[in-house]
Simulated assay, not measured.
Amino acid sequence: MPDSARQSCPPMRPMVEETYGPADLSAKAIFAGGFINFGYWRAVDLDAPLGEADRIRSQEDLYRRVLDLAGPLEEVKVLEVGCGLGMGCALALREYAPAAVTGMDIHPQQLQRARSAHADLLMREQGRLRFAQGAAERMPFPDGEFDAVVSVEAAQHFPDLAAFAAETARVLRPGGRVAVASFFTVDDAPGRPGQLAGLLDTYANGLDIARPVTAITEAFTTAGLTKVRAEPIGRHVWPGWDLWLSRQWAVGTWPRSFLRAYEQRILDYYLIVAS
């Protein structure tokens, strides 16, 4: 792909543009702390009353799971695809001692918010933290720029997983690793998109795209990545997420149907790793 093509972002899908732009999902109370993910609740006591600190820990722990799988990260260059407000980038700098972290997002408003939220950190860590606009399918970086690529709960929005995989393979140095956390259907049964659209507004309106987990594992393999594996972690995501949602949403409302889709073996949450 010529360099000029990599420099321009493809157009955003309308619901992605709205949700992460004017609607500012990160400002919603359910995403306390600025992270935009469902959380990894394994270390949280779900039998005790949940507070904001528990919620933020669940989100941080999801990042830690992904960063651990992409590691070791000491003195290496890390790229986050779909960085949102950059909270994961800041956590990586704080806890993993990388040489540098780049947060990439397709949405210019998200990048503005990230630069504002981390203005002091950007000043202190000049050369170690940066934010860049780019799409998962067209990354504005040279070949072999990074030692590790991570993406946390963004791949469900990517319109072209094959292009994402190819770009990931391109920007990774030989021996580099990629770790992705996102939710996918458990199989490629043809009725899955319709089932999810009937249960969840985010699939009905096109924000999330219904695809089997094999779509991303096969894309990584086709792109030349090796040691590709997918680990289901739904038991540590969906019950805690549903319990947190119960503070604001009643049983039977569409946000509570993520757990229902998991229990019906339609949807699960996965960690996908490749080298």
Rank of each mutant, 00 (worst) to 15 (best):
Leu111Cys: 07
Ala162Cys: 09
Val101Pro: 01
Ala163Thr: 05
Glu263Leu: 14
Gln126Gly: 12
Arg229Pro: 04
Asp105Val: 04
Asp147Asn: 08
Ala135Val: 09
Arg260Pro: 02
Ile56Val: 13
Asp47His: 04
Arg265Tyr: 08
Arg64Gln: 10
Pro2Phe: 08
Ala23Gly: 03
Gln126Glu: 13
Arg235Ser: 10
Ala274Ile: 05
Ile266His: 05
Phe38Asp: 06
Ala230Val: 06
Gly194Cys: 03
Ala261Ser: 12
Thr221Asp: 12
Lys28Thr: 12
Ser26Cys: 06
Pro159Asn: 11
Gly88Asp: 09
Ser58Ala: 15
Gly82Ser: 00
Tyr270Ile: 00
Glu52Arg: 15
Val78Gly: 07
Leu243Gly: 01
His118Phe: 05
Ala27Leu: 04
Val81Pro: 12
Ala204Tyr: 01
Trp244Thr: 11
Pro142Tyr: 07
Phe183Tyr: 13
Asp201Ile: 12
Ala114Ser: 08
Gly86Gln: 06
Leu69Asp: 15
Ile272Phe: 09
Gly86Met: 01
Asp3Ile: 14
Ser8Ala: 14
Gln195Arg: 13
Gln109Cys: 13
Glu75Thr: 08
Arg170Met: 04
Arg64Trp: 06
Gly34Phe: 05
Ala165His: 01
Ala32Lys: 10
Ser4Ala: 15
Gly51Pro: 09
Ala215Trp: 03
Val228Gly: 03
Asp187Leu: 09
Phe38His: 12
Ala100Ile: 13
Arg65Pro: 00
Glu52Thr: 15
Pro10Val: 08
Ala48Val: 02
Ser275Asp: 15
Arg192Pro: 02
Arg13Gly: 03
Tyr269Lys: 02
Val76Glu: 07
Pro255Ala: 13
Ala219Trp: 02
Pro159Phe: 05
Leu111Glu: 08
Arg265Cys: 12
Ala135Cys: 02
